[in-house]
Every structure is written in C-alpha cells, then in structure tokens.
Write a protein that binds this DNA or RNA. Structure first.
Lengths: 343, 343
DNA sequence: TTGTAAGCGTTATCAT
DNA sequence: ATGATAACGCTTACAA
C-alpha cells in the first residue's frame, strides 16, 4: 500500500495535467503547451494530436500554474464605482463582449465610490498580474496612481477625457455635457435653473461646473439653486430633493438632474404634487436610462454612450497589450441630447 | 554584465517575494508564510518581525503561486443570471460583505439566463480551484451538474428551495410567492386575474404555477390571461404587455407581474392611457425594487429578501468550507407582501 | 515552534 | 520544429 507522499500528484485534484496530455499525444509537455496555445511553430499534425488528447482527457489549463510560469494571468481588471447604476453594468457588458472572445477573463471590482476601496482593490487585483486595467475616471489616491504606474500594466480610463492628455482614455467631456444641458434649458426660455446632484463623484461635479459656467455666461446663475448631496442617487432621493427645492424656490422653472434616477423620482413626485412638467418646471435627466423614455411625461435626458465606451476602451487595452502604437490616446465618444416631453 | 538567465528572479516583475520578506525578518520562508497566514504555531515575536518586514517591503502574496502550491485559490465564485436586475446586484453586495473580511475574493459570473453560458463559466472558473460556489437556482445542464459534483467544491444554491432537499440552498418558495400574490388579489375581490412574466427562468415559471393553482382552486383560472414571453424584462416591455392585455381582455381586474420593472411600466402606461389603478385594474409586482414605492400609484409588491439570501448563502458556504456540519441545509428566508396603493 | 526538502503545473530559455 | 532543463513563488509533508 503506497503512502500518499510517494505518489506523484498526490495533492492534486485529479484533474488531468499538461503532462498527461503530452504523453497521450506522444510529445513533450512543452510541445503540448505550444500546441494548445496555438503557437504556430508546432506542426499541424502534432497540434491536432495534442488537441485531441486534451479533449479526450477533458484537459483544462491550470490558470495558477500558467500565471506563475509566465508571470501573467489571462485576466483584465475593471474597476467601477457602482453596480447599482445600470450605466456601469452596460459598460461591463460591452467590455465582456470584447474580452471573452479573446480568451481573457474580466475581473470586476466595485469600489462603491470610495477612493480607499479602489486602492485596496487595485493592490489586490494587481497581485493577480492582470494583462490590462480598465478604470473609471481620473479621481484616485496618489498611492493608487503610483501602483498603476509601477505595475506597468496597460491601463485605459473610462467615462471622462483626460484634461492632461497624458493617459489613454475613452469617454466624453462631462463639462460639455453640463453645458449642453444648460443651453438646452436656456433655449427653452427657462431662466431660473437648478442643478441637482447626488453621489458627488468628480464627473457629477464636472457636469455641475459645466452647467454653472453656462448659466453664468447667460447671467442667470443663482448659487442657491445648486443642490448637491453625497447621498447615493436613487428615485426616492430625487423626489425628496425635488420637493425640497420647490418649497425653497417656488419660482424655479427648470432642473437639470445629475442622474436619471433622480429625475425620474422628481417626475413621479411632480405627478403626486400636481406640478405640471414641463409647463411649470422643465426636467432634464442625465444618462438616459432605459426606463426614462417611458416616464410620464417622457423624460428628456442626455444619453451617454456607455456601451460604446466599454467596447472602445476594451479594444484600446487590447491594442496596448498587443504593444501596438496607439495614435488616438484620447477618444471622445460624445453624448446625445434626447429631447422628449419633460423639457 | 550578467546575462538575464544567470540571475535569480530574472522573469519576475520585481515584486518582493516571500523569500525576501523571510530574509529581512531573519527567518525561513516557511515561517514567514505561516506568520503571514496567521498560523498560530509561530511565536508572536517572530510573527511581528515578519509582518513588519512584509509591510516595509510592500509585500503582497502572489495568488498564482499560492494557488498552485496549495491547490486552492482564495476565490469564491458566484454565478448570477443577470446584472441588469438590481436584485442580483444586491445579493452580490451582501455576499461581498461576508467574504471580503474573510480574505476571500468574489468572482462574479453573469450567465445571461443561458444554461450553456453558465456551463462555460463553471468550467472556466472551476479551473481556478475556488473554495466555494454560489449558484442561482437549480436549473442547469446535466454537464454543469456533473462538473460541480466532480469538483467537490462546496456549493450553495440561492433564490429557490430545493424540492429534493438534497442540496444546500438559501431562498424562499417561489411557488408560495405566486400563491400569495393570487390570494391577495382574490381577497381584494378581483376575479379576472392575469399573470405577466418575461425572461422565463424557472423561478418565474414557478411563480406563475403557484399563481395559477390558487386561481384554479378559486375557480377563476383563465388560461388566456397568462402572458409569458422570453423577452428580457424591462419597464418598456411592461407597458407594452399591459396595453396588449387590456386590449384583448378589457374585463381584466387584476394583474400580477413577475417582476417589478414590468409592473412599473404598466403603471406608467396606465397613467398615459387614463386607466385607473387600482380602481379598474389592480397591479401587483414582484421583488419590490427600491423605486417601486415611489411609483404613481405606489406599487404593491412582494418583497424578496435578496440581501438576506446573499448573506446567509455566503455564511453557509463558509461553514461548508470550514468543514462544519450544517444542520439546516435548506434555509427558507421567506418573502413579504407589501400592500401599497396599486392593489 | 521552526526548518528542510520537494513539488504544485506550467512556460521561458536555450540547445538541437 | 521539438525538447531538456530550470525556474515561477509558494505551501505541504515531514523531521528536528
């Protein structure tokens, strides 16, 4: 009776190894490895034998061994501030669709709008030696920045455009989006305009800034009509803030919400309060979530290209990973004003 | 000038290794390993030295090496059918909150309600030698079932209760939930009741079944009032199906929607059509999404304990991983009928 | 309580 | 085009 430690593979799960595949195919392990990775130096005949053997044995590569030996995983890390916002789910989806066919895993990290949490996730995930990094925005700890830099892992920043233009990024100008919102409302003849934002990440703040500047230019900027709260964005909160704003500023004739869920909550509350939208107050949302077009009245919003951003950003890291020279480090995907019934 | 292959660690990323930590602390690598893993056989004094050395060097364990050596990763795999449904995001969140403090990574797989995709994810992720598995429902391919079984990885099933009681699961009875919906509407004096479901996973079908049985018992079951579509659930679709149903069955006096987004779409469409809810038609949703309480009228719904399910399921795998005997393999977390204005 | 030795499954390097 | 050999960084098994 052999004792465990005398046997080869005593600790393994019993999963077939590359060695076994190689033996069955009558080649050396390294040839099997090359064949399975599709390296073209292997004769097609041998490669076929190896693939057959692998299939017959039900061989699946051990990612840990591969990562250890090659000092690289097959993973791409994506860090988003939230999954509660449908926005990022759609972006993630698009990234997946680009990465999966390339055999890359997508590791999702949700940092809940917390810089510290993002830094932790980064430290953690970087230990996995990912092939690429997809991050959200430019706002992070100095330490996180250093880790990214030091890791040397190709990195693309999503959602906003780098003012410094030193980083690879795919997004749109949050500042312009805010300005566009203001211009639209102004063109509608509105003069007493408010901005309502929750979950104050840098992008929301940038939109507020763009909105504000445009109002200042038009000479109608009123500081007390800016309602910013760090509370998480939600439909309920939108209704609450809407009421609060109307009570304190009954003269109000237009509101730009930093997020569609807030705007939807406002629309619902207006219905309850009997406040006419857009007659008394125009309401403009941001992101154009799928349900916004079905609100009563249908919500006007600024549609953001999150799907396109995800796809393009993924393709961009892929290029970076492949070592290709990227001629367009900053990719502006724009946004679209959807005018419907609420404004 | 030394050539690369003469140097130790020539291929590494330059990241500090356990060896370097050990040297700096003046102990052997294995002692350092034990100290860092919090294994109590290490003298506290030494352990402190090791931790200090690790901190000073900025040491982070190489997960690939650890996984390879121990034949186990620090990951727990969670497979959900969708991220578009806020439901699963909340469950994921709860799982995270349990796992992270234990030092376990959560690998998220989204199988888009596709059995084949789930099977692929399983094959892929199982290769990572996860410590535990959290799966959604009982509906999967035979091949997936075998892989789970063969892997020997502790597994907990979420959302539904195993009729066979052979599996560890945390959820509630989907059948009962459907029945409860029917009883509520019946008690309100409604007789011409419809069921509307999209994204026909097994749980939706089970709810339909529970609803149907209760109507049959009451003698008011009408097959043509069951509207099932495989299209993905959404607010827009809810409005569409609502209109369609009312056109074909103007006598209708109550509808149970398999998902809150459908119900919300119906409420919005009713508003547009001038149909009084609940006077003409009662509307009952399912899941009680955060925004439902703010609809006009406020949506009645069945609140599902997704947060509790995630937490309990996570705790359960943890027990299983620890090898504890689980006395309660089936955990019914119940559900709650939220009666508001729409029914 | 600490350490030695060996090996985890794969790939890089260099040689043939 | 294929293979022998030696890592990769860590942990298990066993010994002391």
């Amino acid at each position: 009776m052999p004792t465990a430690h005398h046997e080869k593979n005593a600790r393994t799960t019993g999963r077939p190894t590359l060695n076994e595949v190689a033996k069955r195919a009558g080649v050396s392990p390294i040839t099997a490895s090359r064949a399975l990775r599709g390296i073209s130096t292997v004769a097609e005949e041998l490669a076929q034998k190896v693939r057959d053997a692998a299939r017959e044995l039900g061989y699946v590569v051990n990612p840990a061994a591969r990562a250890l030996a090659s000092a690289q995983s097959q993973a791409v890390v994506v860090l988003v501030p939230s999954l509660a916002n449908q926005l990022f789910v759609e972006t993630l989806e698009a990234i997946h669709n680009v990465m999966r066919p390339k055999g890359l895993e997508v590791l999702i990290g949700n940092f809940h709008y917390s810089r510290d949490e993002e830094e932790n996730l980064l430290r953690n995930y970087l230990a996995y030696q990912p092939r690429g990094l997809l991050l959200t925005g430019f706002e992070r700890t100095e330490s996180a920045r250093r880790m990214i830099e030091a890791s040397g892992v190709p990195c693309v920043y999503m959602m906003d455009l780098d003012p410094g233009a030193g980083l690879h990024c795919v997004g749109f100008s949050q500042l312009d989006a805010g300005a566009t919102a203001a211009r639209h409302l102004l063109e509608r003849g509105r003069k007493r305009l408010a901005f309502v934002g929750a979950q104050l990440d840098q992008r929301t703040l940038l939109r507020a800034e763009g909105f504000r500047r445009e109002l200042q230019r038009a000479g109608v900027y009123e500081p007390s009509l800016e309602l910013l709260t760090p509370r998480p964005s939600s439909v309920g909160l939108g209704g609450e803030l809407f009421t609060q704003l109307l009570v304190s500023h009954p003269q109000l004739d237009g509101i730009f919400f930093g997020n569609d869920d807030l705007a939807q909550g406002a629309l619902l509350e207006a219905l309850r309060l009997g406040i006419k939208v857009p007659e008394q107050v125009a309401v403009l949302g941001f992101n154009d979530l799928p349900s916004s077009a079905f609100m009563v009245p249908r919500l006007s919003s600024i549609r953001t290209p999150r799907q396109a951003i995800g796809q393009r950003a993924a393709e961009l890291v892929l290029s970076l990973i492949a070592g290709e020279t990227v001629t367009q480090p900053v990719q502006d995907m724009g946004f679209e004003l959807m005018v419907r019934e609420s404004s």
